[in-house]
């Protein structure tokens, strides 16, 4: 036999350490009420900051709108003149285009007006297609899709 001495495996001197079966809860920094209070407090603070931001954005929009209103009469006056000039041009263009057609009256369908109950000297706002009817398709397209390129 290789070895004749036998050593019994035994517990260490003084016995095993006690088994740590006791529950160790995680350290609590805040109580539940503190968490709820903190949540409400932070929300209130954030809401106040949001209010300030909203106010600033609103003021910015208001200022931009105010500036637009200030120049609007000038732009409208200029636009009105250009509009009336174009209406006259359109009428002359139609007269020129339809001069060989028998019985054609400008602005009507062979003498039948579009608006029958209005007084004759009423300027109706033009439809987009009517206004651009004698222009080139390029100009027509450019104006129609202005919002896509500006």
């Amino acid at each position: 036999m290789a070895s004749s001495t036998f050593k019994q495996d035994m517990p260490p001197e003084g016995g095993y350490k006690p088994i740590p079966y006791k529950r160790i809860p995680a350290k609590t920094f805040f109580s539940g009420w503190a968490l709820i209070g903190g949540y409400l407090g932070m929300t209130a603070g954030a809401a106040y900051l949001y209010y300030l931001n909203c106010k600033a954005v609103h003021a910015r929009e208001l200022e931009a709108r105010s500036a637009s209103f200030a120049i609007y009469p000038m732009l409208l006056a200029e636009r009105d003149r250009a509009y009336l000039k174009q209406l006259r041009k359109n009428r002359e263009e139609e007269r020129e285009l339809m001069k060989n057609v028998e019985g054609w009256k400008v602005g009507t369908w062979y003498g039948e007006p579009i608006y029958k109950t209005e007084k004759p000297d009423t300027l109706q706002d033009q439809l987009y297609h009517e206004y651009y009817v004698h222009s080139s398709f390029k100009d027509y397209k450019k104006r129609a899709h202005l919002s896509l390129i500006s």
Binding site: L84, T122, Q124
Partner: peptide
Amino acid sequence: MGVTDDVILPTEEELTVPEIN
């Protein structure tokens, strides 16, 4: 279209003023 001869439009001269450039 729709603007007949009965509709009185101002003439070109009446509408021409120096515009803001």
